[in-house]
Amino acid sequence: MSETEKMVPPKSRAGDIKSQAAAWLSRANAGDWSPEDQTRLDTWLAQSTAHRAAYWRLEAAWDEAERLRVLRAPLLRPDMAPDPRSFAQLKIAAVAMVIAMVGAVALFQTQAPTTLRYATGIGGRQVLNLSDGSKIELNTNTILRVGKIAGQRKVWLDKGEAFFQIKHDAAHPFTVMTGDHKITDLGTKFSVRQDGDRLKVTLVEGRARLDSTRAWSRKQSVDLSPGDVVVATTNSLSLLRKPEKALNEELGWRKGLLIFDHTTLAEAVAEMNRYNTQKLVIDDPLVSKLTVDGTFPIHAVPEFTEVAQAVFGLRVETRGDRTLISK
């Protein structure tokens, strides 16, 4: 590639460089990459910022594409030719699934009566101190069951949100079961929130692992490090990392606080509504896009609507157990 044309780019100069960069990157990932190849690539990269810009961009996207692995099973389309090997795998998977189902039924039958059920109502909060020194804090509108089988540490979060501070015990891992997933703790502080089919796990300290437990899918699992937030639904799983400040804000409920930081009014209202029977309703899409900052006690509905009135000049109207916010 000639460098002299840099200031007056002819058409598709960028496309050209992109193709070259892609050819390099594809070769580098093909599996027979020698030190000489690396030297040649290094030389090409050192030739111009143009090469570096194009190559780094493709490489970064290709690295990001690794995340697609969490979706392995659903991504394989029926239109892709299966080979004998995958049939064999399917058969093994089918056998394993039957065994798993039998196991699940057996477990369920023996365990159902041996769990203790804890529940909080709207706006409620409860702290459970377990005999092993672990602590669980239930947030509003939550149902959690604790297994009572000796030597096994297992809880079921059926609904709502809870924060876990778990005493590590390598011989007896602590497991949180949710609808479609299980979280295995490796000595950590983390929160789990179950909202319909949406699961959110936030890891504050230590390490944990999230596995999907759907019998029909291939196994998905993610290892979490501090700051990781995983949002999983039945068909998807995404991982992002949050700074400590954002984590603390999310866990404000443990101190009875809701902390908003550039939060849209729609999200803020949804959060307030989790804790209060007096429901806030926004009936204007433009209003829901406004953003709020601030800290509110979880029950401070009047203070919240006051801010809406005073700061945004919105109209607030209460009818029965609903409070309408509009322009």
Binding site: S26, A30, G31, L68, L71, L75
Partner: peptide, 30 residues
């Protein structure tokens, strides 16, 4: 990227040469 097969395995499975696999992958990267 997802199944993590080698270039050779992909070539065999798709019935094409490894070079063509490389071209497809390059196109996909873009």
């Amino acid at each position: 990227r997802i199944e993590g097969l080698s270039q050779r395995e992909i070539a065999q499975r798709m019935g094409i040469s490894e070079k063509v696999v490389g071209n497809y992958v390059a196109e996909g990267m873009c």
